[in-house]
Computed example of a mutant assay.
Amino acid sequence: MNQSMTIGIDLAKHVFFVAALDGSGKPARRKKLRRHEVLPFLANHPGAVVGMEACSGAHHWAREIRALGHSVQLLPAQHVKAYLRGQKNDYNDALAIAEAVQHGRIRCVEIKTVDQQLDQSLHRLRQALVTEQTGLINRTRALLA
């Protein structure tokens, strides 16, 4: 694979689906990989553009894949959906991700560091606690009324 190769990865809990497109946009390869097989698979290939849908786990994978020398793009899931053809399945999702990366008009999500992800987790936890506290106060006020 060369730099004009685009790889789309559909992330899941245990099994990842990979679809690769050549420089002209034609499907070059599709593969089903377990979690522990993804990095060795990508380590055996020279630099390519790797795309994934942005989620909390995607940031970890992006950091690992970037360390292997690949260019990584995280795409918002709602924008990738437009590239989906045929029935929704994991291979078609990976192919849609690769096509969206190759098209290049979608604004990528910045890859977060571990510290940034920890900060975001703390902010979301605090927001959940504030929401829960507000609900408890409102319930108590209603009971007292």
Rank of each mutant, 00 (worst) to 15 (best):
A28C: 10
R29P: 07
K31I: 11
K31Y: 07
K31A: 10
K32L: 13
L33N: 10
L33D: 05
L33R: 03
R35Y: 15
H36G: 06
E37S: 09
V38C: 11
L39V: 01
L39A: 06
P40N: 11
P40Y: 13
P40K: 03
L42S: 02
L42W: 12
A43L: 12
A43F: 11
A43E: 15
N44L: 14
N44S: 11
N44E: 15
H45C: 13
P46R: 08
A48Q: 13
A48I: 12
V49D: 00
V50G: 02
V50I: 14
G51I: 02
G51F: 02
G51R: 04
G51Y: 01
M52T: 00
M52K: 01
M52F: 02
E53S: 03
A54P: 02
A54R: 07
S56A: 14
S56M: 09
G57P: 04
H59E: 02
H59K: 04
H59S: 03
H59P: 10
H60L: 12
W61T: 01
R63A: 01
R63I: 08
I65P: 06
I65A: 05
I65G: 00
R66I: 05
R66V: 09
R66K: 13
A67V: 11
A67E: 05
A67N: 07
L68K: 09
L68I: 06
L68M: 08
L68S: 04
G69I: 11
S71W: 13
V72W: 07
V72S: 03
V72A: 03
V72H: 08
Q73I: 15
L74S: 01
L75P: 02
P76A: 02
P76I: 00
A77N: 08
A77H: 03
H79I: 08
H79C: 10
V80W: 03
V80C: 10
V80G: 00
K81L: 02
A82R: 15
A82W: 05
Y83L: 07
Y83R: 08
Y83F: 15
L84P: 01
R85G: 02
Q87V: 13
Q87K: 13
K88M: 01
K88T: 07
N89F: 12
N89A: 05
D90T: 06
Y91P: 09
Y91Q: 14
N92P: 03
N92W: 00
D93N: 10
D93S: 08
D93F: 03
L95P: 06
